[in-house]
Amino acid sequence: FHVTIHVGDITFHIHGVSEEEVKKLEELVRRGADWREIKKTIEEIEK
Score class of each variant (00 low, 15 high):
F1I: 09
F1M: 11
H2K: 12
H2I: 14
H2M: 09
H2A: 10
H2F: 08
H2S: 15
H2V: 14
H2C: 09
V3I: 12
V3H: 07
V3Y: 13
V3K: 02
V3E: 01
V3T: 06
V3Q: 03
T4A: 07
T4P: 02
T4K: 06
T4R: 03
T4M: 09
I5C: 02
H6E: 09
H6Q: 14
H6D: 06
H6V: 12
H6I: 13
H6K: 11
V7K: 05
V7T: 06
V7G: 02
V7H: 08
G8E: 05
G8W: 06
G8C: 08
D9N: 13
D9C: 12
D9Q: 11
I10Y: 15
I10P: 00
I10R: 13
I10G: 04
I10F: 14
I10K: 14
T11Y: 11
T11R: 05
T11Q: 07
T11F: 09
T11D: 05
F12D: 00
F12I: 10
F12L: 10
F12K: 02
H13S: 09
H13K: 09
H13V: 13
H13P: 01
H13E: 13
I14D: 00
I14G: 01
I14T: 03
I14V: 15
I14E: 00
H15Q: 14
H15Y: 15
H15M: 11
H15R: 10
H15F: 14
G16A: 11
G16V: 15
V17Q: 02
V17S: 03
V17G: 03
V17P: 04
V17M: 10
S18F: 06
S18Y: 04
E19F: 15
E19L: 14
E20P: 07
E20G: 08
E20T: 11
E20A: 14
E21Q: 15
E21I: 15
E21D: 15
E21A: 15
V22I: 13
V22G: 04
V22D: 01
V22E: 03
V22H: 07
V22R: 13
V22P: 00
K23M: 12
K23L: 10
K23C: 06
K23F: 12
K23E: 10
K24F: 10
K24P: 01
K24H: 10
K24R: 13
K24T: 10
K24L: 15
K24S: 06
L25S: 00
L25W: 01
L25A: 00
L25G: 00
E26L: 11
E26N: 09
E26R: 08
E26M: 14
E26F: 14
E27A: 09
E27D: 12
E27H: 06
E27V: 04
E27F: 04
E27L: 06
E27C: 04
E27T: 06
L28K: 03
L28W: 02
L28D: 01
L28G: 01
L28H: 02
L28R: 01
L28C: 02
V29A: 07
V29K: 03
V29N: 03
V29H: 03
R30K: 13
R30I: 11
R30T: 09
R30H: 12
R30L: 13
R30D: 13
R31M: 11
R31P: 03
R31C: 10
R31G: 13
R31S: 14
R31H: 09
R31I: 10
G32V: 01
G32F: 03
G32S: 03
G32W: 01
G32I: 01
G32A: 04
G32H: 04
G32Q: 05
A33Y: 02
A33V: 07
A33Q: 02
A33E: 04
A33L: 03
A33D: 03
A33K: 02
A33G: 04
D34L: 03
D34E: 05
W35H: 05
W35V: 07
W35G: 02
W35Y: 06
W35C: 07
R36I: 11
R36S: 15
R36K: 11
R36A: 14
R36Q: 15
E37Y: 02
E37I: 03
E37D: 08
E37F: 02
I38E: 00
I38T: 01
I38M: 04
I38D: 00
I38G: 00
K39M: 15
K39N: 05
K39F: 10
K39D: 02
K40P: 01
K40A: 14
K40M: 09
K40V: 07
K40Y: 07
T41W: 15
T41Y: 15
T41I: 15
T41S: 06
I42P: 00
I42T: 01
I42C: 03
I42H: 00
E43L: 07
E43T: 05
E43F: 04
E43I: 06
E43G: 04
E44F: 04
I45F: 12
I45M: 14
I45H: 03
I45D: 01
E46T: 13
E46A: 11
E46H: 12
E46C: 12
E46K: 10
K47T: 09
K47C: 13
K47A: 14
K47Y: 09
